[in-house]
Amino acid sequence: MKTFTYTQMRSELSDILELMRAGDSVRITQKNKPDILLGNIVTNTAIETLKRQLEESPTEIIKRALEESPDEFTKALLHTQTKHAAIIKKLEDK
């Protein structure tokens, strides 16, 4: 979180708005007054995206993860397989 004085806010409003668009929060101070905290809010678009993701099946989520970042997914899969190898082996034997 970055802090700006009221005077700075007035002169640097465009830069402050860009920070907030990037997801940062800011604190505005003014002499003899309580500080004001400003932050980016979750938009309707983000909410709709989350709802859509919650409706996806696990298979769809895995496919999307592979498409978006195959290296990260492969590392996570390998870690899980290594960590739970004994359990996976017992399940395969059944």
Rank of each mutant, 00 (worst) to 15 (best):
N44A: 13
L38D: 02
L66S: 03
A85V: 07
K89V: 07
T3H: 09
I61T: 11
K33C: 09
L13E: 09
D24E: 15
R10Q: 15
Y6C: 09
S14Y: 08
D15C: 04
I47E: 10
T5L: 00
K51F: 00
A46V: 01
A22W: 08
S14R: 10
M20G: 03
I41K: 07
S14F: 08
S11P: 05
Q53F: 04
I41W: 04
Q8T: 05
K83H: 11
D71E: 15
G39Y: 11
S69E: 03
R27F: 00
T43Y: 12
Y6G: 03
K51D: 02
L78S: 08
Q81N: 13
E18H: 04
G39Q: 13
L77D: 10
K90M: 12
L19W: 04
E72W: 10
Y6L: 13
K90W: 07
P70S: 09
N32Y: 07
K31V: 11
T82D: 09
V26E: 01
S11Q: 14
V42D: 03
K83L: 08
R10Y: 09
L77E: 10
E48C: 00
T49K: 13
E18R: 06
D71F: 09
K90P: 08
M9T: 13
E55S: 11
T49R: 13
T49L: 14
A86F: 06
R27Y: 00
K75C: 04
T59Y: 08
T29C: 05
Q8S: 07
T80E: 10
S11T: 15
P70N: 12
S57E: 03
A85S: 09
Q53R: 05
T7A: 15
T82L: 10
L19N: 02
N32D: 11
E48H: 01
I87L: 15
T45P: 00
T5W: 01
K33R: 14
E48T: 02
T7M: 13
I16K: 05
R10L: 15
I87T: 15
A85H: 09
T29N: 06
L13A: 08
H84L: 11
I41R: 08
I16H: 05
K89A: 14
S57M: 03
E55N: 12
M9V: 08
G39F: 12
T82W: 08
D24G: 03
S25Y: 04
K90S: 14
